[in-house]
């Protein structure tokens, strides 16, 4: 966690042209993932862009410390840590965090594909509504398709804790979804 928390220039080095070049090849291809993760963390498209941009810049500054591990979890970990720092600022600058937390349905808009059904909307709203700790582990596992080991790296947790968190998160999301669907049948009777 401490590795990439706050200090802007860990060793005073500014990345040179060749570092930027390597960064483009190794890290930049994961921008979609970084943005997608940021979208679910922030639940706001504008804040997600700010977060993704800030994270990429931070990643570049720490890139000299990148030792050829997997780039995607490495970048997502930076996104998450950057958000931890940024959300305080966001809370102070605009609305109170509580309002953000309660603005339930603002995940990525599944209606963008016009034919997307009721079901997707409910799932997106439920995922946006559950607590951040529940949401992040589900997004990493199911949407970003990370393994337990990779999730452990992003969240800086032991694998055992990832497993128990994931199990709890699935239960929570199922409960949230059931609450939203009420008794209507959306083919989710198994939940």
């Amino acid at each position: 966690m401490g590795l990439m928390s706050d200090a802007p220039e860990p060793d005073g080095r500014t990345p040179d042209g060749r570092t930027v070049e390597r960064f483009r090849i190794v890290v930049l291809p994961h921008l979609d993932s970084a943005y997608g993760f940021a979208r679910w963390l922030t639940r706001d498209p504008v804040a997600a862009q700010d977060l993704a941009q800030e994270s990429l810049l931070r990643a570049l500054r720490y890139f000299h410390a990148f030792r050829g591990e997997e780039a995607k979890p490495w970048l997502l970990r930076i996104v998450r840590n950057t958000w931890t720092d940024m959300r305080t600022r966001y809370a102070a600058e605009s609305e109170s965090l509580e309002i953000v937390e309660n603005r339930a349905a603002d995940g990525p808009d599944p209606e963008q594909s016009a034919q997307a059904g009721d079901r997707r909307r409910h799932v997106a709203a439920a995922l946006a509504a559950v607590p951040a700790e529940v949401r992040e582990v589900l997004v990493l596992r199911e949407i970003e398709d990370l393994s337990y080991k990779q999730i452990a790296a992003v969240l800086d947790l032991p694998i055992g804790t990832v497993m128990s968190r994931l199990a709890r998160a699935r239960e929570k999301l199922a409960a949230e979804l059931r609450g939203r669907l009420g008794r209507r049948d959306h083919g989710l009777s198994d939940l």
């Binding site: 930049l28 921008l31 979609d32 970084a34 943005y35 997608g36 979208r39 498209p45 862009q49 993704a52 941009q53 990429l56 810049l57 990525p108 808009d109 599944p110 963008q112 594909s113 997307a116 079901r119 997707r120 799932v123 997106a124 995922l127 589900l138 199911e142 949407i143 699935r170 999301l173 199922a174 979804l177 989710l188 198994d190 939940l191």
Partner: peptide, 25 residues
């Protein structure tokens, strides 16, 4: 139940990074 939940989440449409964000970076 676990499979259903997994499929529901995987069925959510992905939102790629906007062009504006790419340009900013």
């Amino acid at each position: 139940a676990a499979r259903t939940m997994s499929n529901l989440l995987r069925d959510l449409p992905a939102e790629p990074a906007p062009d504006l964000l790419r340009a900013r970076i």
